[in-house]
Design a binder for these strands. Structure first.
Length: 937
DNA sequence: TTGTTCACG
DNA sequence: GACGTACGTGAACAAA
C-alpha cells in the first residue's frame, strides 16, 4: 500500500454511515440472529449496502480513497450553542441500539476506514475531510442525500444520492434552495428545520428565504438592512428574530476544522481481507451474503450452524461451562471469622446473590431466620441466625439451636456491603428480601431481580417463579420447600427446619438466583428489553416496598359496625328467600340456586359452560328480575351484601397489622401481563365504589391524626393513550380542546350537537369508547347496552367509519402479534400474546387481548414512571405515597401540606410520559382531599 | 384444586 | 354458516 499524499488525480468517497444505518433499519423487516435472537436487521441491510457499494465502486470513475463516517453520540458541540438542538427527535428504536457497534464492525470487516469523533456530528467530519481533499486538489463524492451537506457542494465536491443513484451538483442544490451552495446555510438559518429543531425565523420558509438572500446577497447584509424590507410582517420578523437567526446559522454551518488525527492518505482504498470479512458475516449469520462474498473470492462458504433461538426464558442456547449444582459445596457460616471471609469474597466479586429465609410469607409479620449468599457457581453459603429445635428433632423444645450467629452482629457486618453502591445485590423477587432487611434498618442497593428480568423478557409462559425459571433456564430442579416444612395442617415454619437440611435448600436458592442472573441479564438486549427492565421494572422495587411498609390506616369500628348491619340484613333476606322458595337451601351455592330457579320453578335460562351447571350470574338474575320475578331480585340483594361483608368488612379487619394498626398490601410487579400491578393480601385495588352501599367501605380507610388522604387520578388515561397510539386526529383534537370525550363521540357518530345531548346517547357512545379499548364485538356491545345485536353492530360500523384509524391500529397490532408473538407499548414494554396463532373460537380472545395490551400497558407504564419519580418530587413534604389503583395514587399528607403535595404530585403524574415519549394529547390529573378515601376520591 | 361469581380499573 | 365473544386483575365460596 502506498502512502502517497492525497492530491490531484485522487478521488475521495465519503459515506454517510448513519444515513445508511437508518435506511437499512427501515427498509428491512425486524430480522434477528437465529442463534440468540439479537436484532440484526439494520446490520444486515448495512452490510449488503456496503457490499453493493464495493462492487459498484470499481467502475470507470472509481474512488481512490474511501471512508464511512458515523455520528458518535446524540450530544454534540451544537447543544452548547442551543440546548434544544435535535431535542424533538424521537428516541432511537431499542432494537437499533445494540446494532450501532456492529455497523462499525461491519465497516472494518470490509476494510474501509471507519470514522467517528466525540462531540462532532458525522456531517462535520465529512465537511472537514471534503475541505481537506478539495484544498489538496482532489475530487470528493459524498454519498448521501442529506440536505445539510449540500453547503459543501462545488469546487470538485459533489454528492451522490445512494437511493436514486443521482449526482447532486451545484445546479441541483440551486433547484432545491434557490441559491448556490455557498449561500445554502443562509437559507437554512432563515427557514429553520423542524426535524433538527433549528428555530430559524418564524413564518419564513425556503422560498421566502431564497427571495431575500437573492435580493440582499447574504444573510448579514440582509439583517443589516432589514429596515428596508417593504413587507411589514417580514421586516418585523427579521428585526425581532435576528439573534435567533444567527444562532440558527451557527447550528447549520458545518465545522471544517474538526480535529482529526489522521491524514487523507490513510483512507486509500483497500480490498477486504477475505478471512476477516467472512468471519464477520458468519458471526452475524448472514447466509446469503456469506455465500455471495465467498463466491466472489472463490472460497468455500463457511457453515453457519442452524440452531434456532430459544424462546424468552427457554433453554439456554449455550450453557456456560458451569459444573452442576452441588449441595456438598455449600458452607454453613457459624463464626464471625467465617462471615468476614464471605464478605471479603463478596467485595472481590462486586456482586452477590442474596436470599432471606423467614418464618412466613408476609414480610411485615414474618421473622428473619437466615440469609444465604452466592458469588459464583458452587460458591454459596447459609448464615442461620434464628433456628430453634423442632421439626426433625425428637423433642419439640423450641430452644435455640447451637452453631448459629446472632442476628444483630451479622446484619451489622453485612450492612456496609448491602448498602455499597459498588456491589450489586441480586435477588429473585428481591422486594421481599428488601423489606425483610429494611425492617432491620438496611436499605439494600443497587438491586437486580431475576424475576423482573424474566418478566421484562416477555415469555409467553408467563411464569417467573424461581422453580419454573430454574427448570427452563438452567435445566435444574430445585429442592422443594415442601420436603422441608411440609404442607397443609402439619406445615412448620422455616426456623424449625434443622440446620443440615436448611443449609442446602437456602444456599441453593442463592446459587440458582446467581445463575439465573448470569443467564437472563445478557438476554435483555437481544429481546430489546433492557430499557423496560431498567426504567419500568427495577426502579419500582424500593418505591413499592416503601408504600407497602407505610400501609394505610383503617377504622376497625367502622368496619365491624358495617359487618353487623350486613349480617342482620342478610338474615332478613335469607328468611324472605327461603319463604319464597318454600325450602331452606344454601343461597351462596350457584348449583342449588340454579336448580331451584330453572328446574323447580321452570324459569327460562339454559345450561352454561362445560360443567353443565346453570349460570346464575348477575346479568342472568337481572334479566329474570326485570321480568318481574321476586326471587332473583332478592338473591341479587343478598349477593351484594354477602360479597361486601365477606370480602371487605369482615376480611379487611383481619389484615390490620397489630404493630402498626394499618393494612399493608403487597404489590406484585410481575403479576399482570400488561404491566399493571396486582395487589394482594389484601387486594386494595378492588375496594367498592360503584354502589352507594359499597362506597361506604371506603370511609374505613382513614388518614392518621393531623393528616389527610389525597387521591390523584388520571382522567381517561386509556382513551388518551388510544388517541395517541392509534393516531386518531378527531380524538386527539377533542382532548386538546378539553371537551367531553363521550359526548364528542356521540356527536360524531349520530350527528347530534354536543350541547344538550340526550344522556342515553352519550351513555351508548361511552360504552363504545370502552369497547374499542377492549377489542369490541357486536355481541359484547349488544349485551352491555342491552340492545339488539344488529343495532350494536351498526354502531360499531359507524364508529369505524368515523374513526378509520382505529381499524388500522387494530390490524397493525394483530399483525405485529402474529409476526412476533408479542406486542410493545410506546415505552418499549414487551407484552406476550400467547395463543395469537390458535385457530377456532379461542382466537378471538387472544386477538382482543393483543389489541388491548399496548393501551392498557402504556397507561400502566405512565403511572409507573410517575411513581418512580414521586419519592424525589415529594421528599421535602410531610407526605407519603400509600396506594396505587391502576390510574390513581393515594397519599397521606400532613393537613397543612395538602396544596403543595397536590401541586408536586400532579406535576409528576402529568409529565410522566416525558421525555421518553412526547404524547400528542394532554394528560389530565384530578385531585381530591378528605379524612377518608371516600371523601378523597 | 377448579369453577363461579363479583369487587375494581 | 357457526363458533364464542368485550380487556386486565384477586378473593371468597362451593364443589369436586
Amino acid at each position: 500500500m502506498s502512502e502517497n499524499a492525497f492530491g490531484k488525480g485522487h478521488h475521495l468517497h465519503l459515506i454517510d454511515g448513519s444515513a445508511f444505518i437508518f435506511r437499512a433499519y427501515h427498509a428491512l423487516p425486524p430480522l434477528t440472529r437465529k442463534s440468540d435472537g439479537l436484532p440484526i436487521g439494520a446490520v444486515a441491510g448495512f452490510s449488503n449496502m456496503l457490499w453493493k457499494y464495493a462492487q459498484d465502486a470499481k467502475g470507470s470513475d472509481a474512488p481512490t480513497h474511501v471512508a464511512v463516517i458515523f455520528d458518535h453520540s446524540a450530544k454534540t458541540f451544537r447543544n452548547e450553542i442551543y440546548a434544544d438542538y435535535k431535542a424533538n427527535r424521537p428516541p432511537l428504536p431499542e432494537e437499533l441500539v445494540p446494532q450501532f457497534p456492529l455497523t462499525r464492525d461491519a465497516t472494518r470487516a470490509f476494510n474501509i476506514a471507519c470514522i467517528e469523533l466525540e462531540h462532532y456530528e458525522a456531517d462535520d467530519i465529512i465537511a472537514t475531510l471534503a475541505c481537506q481533499a478539495r484544498d489538496a486538489g482532489g475530487r470528493v463524492t459524498i454519498i448521501s442525500s442529506d440536505k445539510d451537506l449540500m453547503q459543501l457542494v462545488g469546487g470538485g465536491v459533489v454528492m451522490l444520492d445512494p437511493i436514486k443513484g443521482k449526482e447532486i451538483g451545484p445546479d441541483e442544490v440551486h433547484d432545491k434552495f434557490g441559491v448556490g451552495p455557498d449561500r445554502v446555510v443562509d437559507i437554512q438559518a432563515l427557514a429553520g428545520d423542524s426535524v433538527d429543531n433549528v428555530p430559524g425565523a418564524p413564518g419564513i420558509g425556503i422560498k421566502t428565504a431564497a427571495l431575500l438572500i437573492n435580493e440582499y446577497g447574504d444573510l448579514e447584509n440582509l439583517l443589516a438592512n432589514a429596515e428596508q424590507i417593504k413587507q411589514p410582517k417580514r421586516r418585523q420578523t427579521l428585526l425581532d428574530y435576528a439573534d435567533q437567526i444567527r444562532v440558527s446559522k451557527r447550528l447549520v454551518q458545518l465545522d471544517c476544522e474538526t480535529p482529526l488525527d489522521f491524514g487523507l492518505e490513510t483512507l486509500e482504498i483497500r480490498d477486504p481481507e477475505p478471512d476477516t470479512l467472512l468471519d464477520f458475516l458468519t458471526r452475524m449469520e448472514f447466509r446469503t451474503l456469506t455465500n455471495r462474498v465467498a463466491e466472489k473470492f472463490a472460497l468455500e462458504a463457511p457453515a453457519i450452524p442452524d440452531t434456532p433461538a430459544s424462546p424468552a426464558g427457554g433453554a439456554p442456547v449455550a450453557a456456560p461451562d458451569w459444573p452442576p449444582i452441588d449441595h456438598e459445596l455449600y458452607r454453613r457460616i457459624g463464626t464471625m471469622a467465617e462471615l468476614d471471609e464471605v464478605i471479603a469474597t463478596i467485595r472481590e466479586a462486586g456482586a452477590v446473590a442474596i436470599d432471606t429465609e423467614t418464618t412466613g410469607l408476609n414480610e411485615m409479620t414474618a421473622d428473619l431466620v437466615g440469609i444465604s449468599l452466592c458469588t459464583g457457581p458452587g460458591v454459596a453459603c447459609y448464615i442461620p441466625m434464628a433456628h430453634v429445635a423442632g421439626g426433625g428433632d425428637l423433642f419439640d423444645s423450641g430452644a435455640r439451636v447451637e452453631g448459629q450467629l446472632d442476628l444483630e452482629p451479622v446484619l451489622a457486618a453485612l450492612k456496609p456491603v448491602l448498602e455499597d453502591d459498588a456491589i450489586l445485590k441480586v435477588g429473585q423477587n428481591i422486594k421481599y428480601d428488601w423489606k425483610m432487611l429494611a425492617r432491620h434498618g438496611i436499605r439494600m442497593k443497587p438491586l437486580e431481580d431475576t424475576m423482573l428480568m424474566s418478566y421484562a423478557l416477555g415469555s409467553e409462559l408467563f411464569n417467573h417463579g424461581m422453580d419454573g425459571l430454574a427448570e427452563r433456564v438452567l435445566g435444574h430442579k430445585c429442592l422443594s420447600i415442601k420436603d422441608l416444612i411440609g404442607s397443609g395442617k402439619s406445615q412448620i415454619t422455616f426456623d424449625r427446619v434443622p440446620l443440615d437440611k436448611a443449609t442446602p435448600y437456602a444456599a441453593e436458592d442463592a446459587e440458582v438466583t446467581w445463575r439465573l442472573w448470569q443467564m437472563l441479564r445478557p438476554r435483555l438486549p437481544g429481546h430489546a428489553a433492557t430499557t423496560a427492565y431498567e426504567t419500568l421494572e427495577r426502579p419500582m422495587i424500593p418505591v413499592l416496598a416503601d408504600m407497602e411498609m407505610a400501609g394505610i390506616k383503617l377504622d376497625p369500628e367502622h368496619l365491624s359496625r358495617m359487618s353487623n348491619v350486613f349480617a342482620q340484613r342478610m338474615a332478613g333476606l335469607e328468611d324472605e328467600i327461603h319463604g319464597l322458595v318454600g325450602t331452606r337451601f344454601n343461597i351462596g351455592s350457584p348449583k342449588q340456586l340454579g336448580e331451584i330457579l330453572f328446574d323447580q320453578m321452570g324459569l327460562a335460562g339454559g345450561k352454561q359452560g362445560k360443567t353443565g351447571a346453570y349460570s346464575t350470574s348477575a346479568d342472568v338474575l337481572e334479566d329474570l328480575a326485570a321480568e318481574g320475578h321476586e326471587l332473583p331480585a332478592r338473591v341479587l340483594d343478598w349477593r351484594q351484601i354477602s360479597k361486601l361483608k365477606s370480602t371487605y368488612t369482615d376480611a379487611l379487619q383481619t389484615h390490620v397489622n397489630p404493630d402498626t394498626g394499618r393494612v399493608h398490601t403487597c404489590y406484585a410487579i410481575a403479576g399482570a401481563a400488561t404491566g399493571r400491578l396486582a395487589s394482594t393480601e389484601p387486594n386494595l385495588q378492588n375496594i367498592p365504589i360503584r354502589s352507594d352501599e359499597g362506597r361506604r367501605i371506603r370511609e374505613a380507610f382513614i388518614a392518621a391524626p393531623g393528616h389527610k388522604l389525597i387521591s390523584l387520578d388520571y382522567s381517561q388515561i386509556e382513551l388518551r393513550v388510544l388517541a395517541h397510539v392509534a393516531d386518531i386526529p378527531a380524538l386527539k383534537q377533542a382532548f386538546r380542546d378539553g371537551i367531553d370525550i363521550h359526548a364528542m363521540t356521540a356527536s360524531q357518530m349520530f350527528g347530534v350537537p354536543v350541547e344538550g345531548m340526550d344522556p342515553m346517547i352519550r351513555r351508548q357512545a361511552k360504552a363504545i369508547n370502552f369497547g374499542v379499548i377492549y377489542g369490541i364485538s357486536g355481541f359484547g356491545l349488544a349485551r352491555n347496552l342491552r340492545i339488539p345485536r344488529a343495532e350494536a353492530q351498526a354502531f360499531i360500523d359507524t364508529y369505524f367509519q368515523r374513526f378509520p384509524e382505529i381499524r388500522a391500529y387494530m390490524d397493525r397490532t394483530v399483525a405485529n402479534a402474529r409476526r412476533d408473538g408479542f406486542v410493545r407499548t410506546i415505552f418499549g414494554r414487551r407484552i406476550p400474546t400467547p395463543g395469537i396463532d390458535t385457530k377456532g373460537p379461542a382466537a378471538g380472545g387472544a386477538r382482543r387481548a393483543a389489541i388491548n395490551a399496548p393501551i392498557q400497558g402504556a397507561a400502566a407504564d405512565i403511572i409507573r414512571r410517575a411513581m418512580i419519580r414521586m419519592p424525589q418530587a415529594i421528599r421535602d413534604l410531610p407526605a407519603r405515597m400509600l396506594l396505587q389503583v391502576h390510574d390513581e395514587l393515594v397519599f397521606e399528607v400532613r393537613e397543612d401540606a395538602c396544596t403543595p403535595l397536590i401541586g408536586a404530585a400532579r406535576k409528576v403524574m402529568e409529565g410522566a410520559a416525558e421525555p421518553a415519549v412526547k404524547l400528542s394529547v394532554p394528560i389530565v390529573v384530578d385531585a381530591g382531599t378528605g379524612d377518608n378515601w371516600a371523601e378523597a376520591h
